[in-house]
Nucleic acid binder design. Structure first.
Length: 121
RNA sequence: UGAGCAGACUAUGUGACAGCAUGAACGCUUUUCAGUUCAUGAGGAAAGUCCGGGCAUCACAAAGCAGGGUAGCUGUUAACGGCAGCCGAGGGCGACCUCAGGGCAAGUGCAACAGAGAUAUACUGCCUGUUUUCGCAGGUAACGGUGGAAAGGCGAGGUAAGAGCUCACCAGUGUGCAGGAGACUGUACAGCUAUGUAAACCCUACCCGAUGCAACGUCUAUUGGUGCUUUAUAUCUUAACGUUCGCUUGACGGAUAUGAAGUAAUGACGGCUUUAACUUAUCGGCGACGGUAAGUAUAGAUAAAUUGUCACACUCGACAGAACCCGGCUUAUCGGUCUGGUCACUAC
RNA sequence: UCCUCCUUAGCUCAGUCGGUAGAGCACUCGGCUGUUAACCGAGUUGUCGCCCGUUCGAGCCGGGCAGGGGGAG
């Protein structure tokens, strides 16, 4: 990935869940928050609810793929965490990529603008 | 042809484009990052973590107790609670399958309800004596019912009635002899009849030190507290304290306080994949397995890699994802293929 | 990676050493009251998580699965 780091620490995840904005859909929940850095930080959550190891790995793969394809359109300087939902492992990958390219990026951009607005207030 | 038994193998395939991880080479560059090309890239259960072993550490890793495990025999193995062959018991017409399969003839405990009586007894009975009868005393345990189990079973003799009291056969126990590596089998004799339950306590034989790769090792930033090591001073003494899951013994370290110096944590790297390895051939063995020869190199990540889309083919694709590594066991699973026995029916 | 515990009525829990499983709340019916609540009386409710085994007989003993909780690094 071009300008993205992996997010590893649990405290970053927790901070994002508490303070970030979220975009929910049938397949996933996307948390975003500006981080004031020259790069993005990216994390994936695939919990036990989704299923066994095969399903969790598949969900992670699909999210990574979709993020890679949509990366160029993303705003820079945000923390982003995608939480997989159960419906994600039953669909084709193209469907989720498409969703990410068309809706996801727009929603993220809008959420970031709002988030910055909130921060200023 | 149908039904059934045992064992082994396999786990969609091919192509195009895009993408991921590791390694090598190339070129760029002080180096790194990024790039190009090539190679390789999950399983039969990778799972559950139920056993066993390697490896590492615990200062020595010791002895006993406690605790835990195993339980026909012989073999196999690094080891095992696995596996193979055999023995015994049970099931199936059979191929074959199942068995925690040592000891209640050491001790203790438990056995509800029913039943006269549950480890010792006498209700209904039978017989003898006595008695007008009722009943009483004695003998006896075959018959009756209860129960999972009633003191060997069944038949004959015997007797007042009966009883292993006697005999034949059978079951069980012990001893001798024969066979076998052994479990055990066969046979002769003897006295005797002994309820079940050790997946109840327990006894016998054998085995087990503990903790787990987030073990552990190397390098390194910072230093307020904390732990450890070294050293100086003071105090206490040969008993206390500390060390190894519990207890005892042994062994080892003298201990505590204060000051000074060093070191550990964090992070990175190693451990991390070449082996009790795999494939083929051959030899030994009924077999598990072992020996020899040749060949092969075949995941190693750390928020964690094998995928996505399209096309074609068919039997239309189940269960499911390595995390230190092996040998098993158990559980999940769409199907398919092959081999060897068995039974029934039909035809020749 | 490893260690432990639990699963019983609709809910919360008892059930020691094996012998047909209970308590409280809830629910149903009747009484009391002008009516409701409270109170009194009576009653219903279990594949003891699932599957094997040991035993004459398992909620209980042994083994294997499943689900859930807690803990250590």
């Amino acid at each position: 990935m071009l300008y993205t780091e992996k997010m590893k620490d649990n405290k970053n995840f927790l901070a994002l869940y508490r303070r970030g904005r979220y975009i929910a859909s049938k397949y996933s929940v996307i948390y975003v928050m500006p981080n004031n850095r020259p790069y993005n930080r990216f994390g994936i959550t695939a919990g036990k609810k989704i299923g066994n190891a095969v399903n969790r790995n598949r969900a992670k793969r699909l999210i990574r793929l979709a993020y890679r394809e949509a990366e160029l359109k993303m705003p820079i300087g945000i923390d982003i965490v995608i939480v997989a939902r159960k419906a994600l492992c039953e669909i084709k990958s193209s469907e989720y990529s498409l969703y990410m390219m068309e809706q996801g990026v727009k929603e993220i951009a809008r959420a970031i603008e709002k988030g910055i607005g909130n921060g200023k207030r």
